[in-house]
């Protein structure tokens, strides 16, 4: 089963000011979409629209299995990492992740994500409240939160934010793994964040 993601003629405006329009893309499995543009060009807005969190003024985002017309619910197939996505501070990573699973009816899978947590070096602090973490650690928790339900679509906004050299290596590894079977969407100012991309959307021109 394969999942395809496409954006058709997307437009977004606030208070009658148009941020972008006529944005389209079409992604097949194992492909990467790169979104670039200067600060304030609407990269994060476009990311939010693709994630299903923001409604476009015009156009639509469609996630579809190629063999059927069934459209799965966005929240079960998407993982998002971004600077403005907050974890529940008063909870530990374990509690945050358990919530991410139970809200998707996947409670039993927690023990099976142990390798992921180890890779992200979270095992030592799995039960401390997230508010005590450094920004680098918080970023790792966000990656765990985004990947724990093995989403077909991984969306990253500023993927290397707050990470040291080891962290950057790790994220590149995660991106490669995602591309084994799924899709990747990356919004960034630094195009060296991705090794290659199949489609590109440039905003702010």
């Amino acid at each position: 089963m394969t999942l395809e993601l496409s954006g058709r003629n997307l437009k977004k405006g606030f208070n009658r000011r148009v941020i972008f329009e006529r944005i389209s893309f079409s992604l097949k499995p194992r492909q990467t979409l790169l979104i670039t543009g200067p600060n304030g060009s609407g990269k994060s807005t476009l990311i939010k629209i693709i994630s299903g969190v923001l409604t476009p003024t015009d156009g639509q985002v469609v996630a579809q299995r190629s063999e059927s017309t069934a459209v799965p619910q966005m929240h079960s197939i998407i993982g998002l990492v971004s600077p403005y996505l907050q974890m529940y501070d008063e909870f530990s990573p374990r509690e945050n992740l358990q919530f991410a699973l139970s809200v998707r009816n996947m409670k039993s899978s927690f023990h099976s994500v142990s390798p992921l947590l180890e890779k992200l070096q979270l095992k030592g602090r799995l039960d401390d409240p997230v508010k005590t973490f450094s920004s680098g650690m918080k970023q790792r928790v966000k990656y765990a939160f985004a990947l724990i339900h093995q989403p077909p679509i991984l969306i990253l906004d500023e993927p290397m934010a707050n990470l040291d050299a080891d962290g950057i290596e790790l994220v590149k590894e995660l991106m490669h793994e995602q591309l084994h079977e799924g899709l990747l969407v990356v919004a960034t100012n630094d195009i060296t964040d991705v090794d290659r991309h199949d489609q590109q959307v440039t905003l702010g021109i």
């Binding site: 139970s102 996947m106 093995q150």
Partner: peptide
């Protein structure tokens, strides 16, 4: 990895209770 199994059909009730 089998995404199909994991495209969870979270029932409404289950999600509400989790929240």
């Amino acid at each position: 990895m089998g995404y199909d199994r994991n495209i969870a059909k979270a029932s409404l009730w289950q999600a509400s209770v989790a929240i």
